[in-house]
């Protein structure tokens, strides 16, 4: 029995990893395609029909590239910093429920790799750890651009973790649990976006800032810092940063789906399909934003986070608590 549970866990992990990494790889293609169409271009269309072999070609290219380590770099930190970003992004996927419990030969099999009773905090903890990949990668490269990118990244991600966490407090209050499975179960009647539109918007904005994408891509601002914290990385190490970013986008999509859009719940289609569809809405929105908005200035970024998002998030918590107390009588 113990052995069976272990095999089942491995199986679930393998399936989730495959789907997640596959989606992330193809998200790169989708982003380039969509960005092309937003700019009235075609985007990649040479590798196979509609460029469907592009991610594979990119992967082969990345693996075959020379792995350079700049002179004066802190070699150990430089080597392991990219892994932090990718690992952390992938680990978050462990607590995302992707279907209702399956019943197989009388056993109740939860369709989530690990139903932590503090799943939401686990998500926040991991996303707060991903700062290290950025800051250390920037520091270890021994380059001005990287260092500036790393410093910017550290400051930005620490600042936007606060609204990210605060915007989730009303969700926890409504669901009465930190567990992501319970949060999805609490949205059986209606998704939380209906009652928490402000928290939804704050979470989305903070999530964009956490994933360091436009208009918050100051850590890797191309025209100011070359590529910011990953300027000096090449080959597979750069690819790890890249994969980390896209996995992070997918995971954020899944988290938005779980926290605000009802997770895997939906009519007609199978639950997994619903989750993937909902999860893909966020990357699409991020790509759309990338095609639309220019980059913020650094002081604007900080003002926006500290002086606007955090007070609104706090007020939202207060209002939610008041309404809940009032409804309870």
């Amino acid at each position: 029995m113990w052995f069976l549970g272990f095999v089942l866990l491995l199986l679930k992990t393998a399936i989730v990893l495959t789907i997640l990494l596959g989606l992330a790889a193809y998200l790169i293609l989708v982003e380039r395609k969509l960005l092309g169409r937003f700019q009235i271009r075609f985007g990649p269309n040479r590798a196979g029909p509609f460029g469907i072999w592009q991610p594979i070609a990119d992967g082969i290219k990345m693996i075959l590239k020379e792995d350079t380590i700049p002179q004066g770099a802190d070699r150990v930190v430089f080597k392991y910093a990219p892994a932090v970003v990718a690992t952390v992004a992938i680990l978050i996927a462990a607590v995302i429920p992707f279907s209702r419990d399956a019943i197989l030969w009388g056993y109740d099999i939860p369709m989530v790799i690990s139903d932590l009773n503090v799943g939401l905090l686990y998500v926040l903890a991991l996303s707060s750890l991903s700062v290290y990949g950025v800051a250390l990668g920037g520091w270890a490269s021994n380059s001005k651009y990287s260092l500036l990118g790393g410093i910017r990244g550290a400051a930005q991600m620490v600042s936007y973790e606060l609204p990210l966490g605060l915007s989730l407090v009303p969700v926890v209050m409504l669901a009465g649990s930190f567990s992501l499975v319970d949060i999805v179960n609490a949205q059986a009647c209606y998704p939380f976006v209906v009652v928490q539109p402000i928290a939804f918007v704050i979470f989305l904005i903070a999530a964009v800032a956490e994933s360091k994408r436009l208009p918050f891509d100051l850590p890797e601002a191309e025209n100011e810092l070359n590529a910011g914290y990953h300027t000096e990385f090449s080959g597979m190490r750069f690819a790890l940063y890249f994969i980390g970013e896209y996995v992070h986008m997918m995971v954020l999509g899944a988290l938005v789906a779980v926290f605000f859009l009802g997770g895997w719940r939906g009519p007609w289609l199978p639950p997994v399909v619903w989750l993937v569809l909902k999860a893909l809405m966020v990357p699409f929105f991020l790509i759309w934003t990338r095609a639309t908005l220019p980059r913020l200035r650094y002081d604007q970024l900080m003002h926006f986070g500290w002086k606007l998002l955090i007070p609104i998030a706090l007020l939202n918590i207060l209002a939610t608590g008041a309404v809940m107390l009032w409804l309870r009588g």
Binding site: A125, S128, G138, I151, A154, V158, E161
Partner: peptide, 18 residues
């Protein structure tokens, strides 16, 4: 993890880098 590893040490690191 959130408070010590994720926030306070990041601020330390930030200052050391700066």
């Amino acid at each position: 993890v959130i408070i010590y590893a994720g926030a306070i040490m990041v601020v330390f690191l930030f200052i050391v880098m700066m």
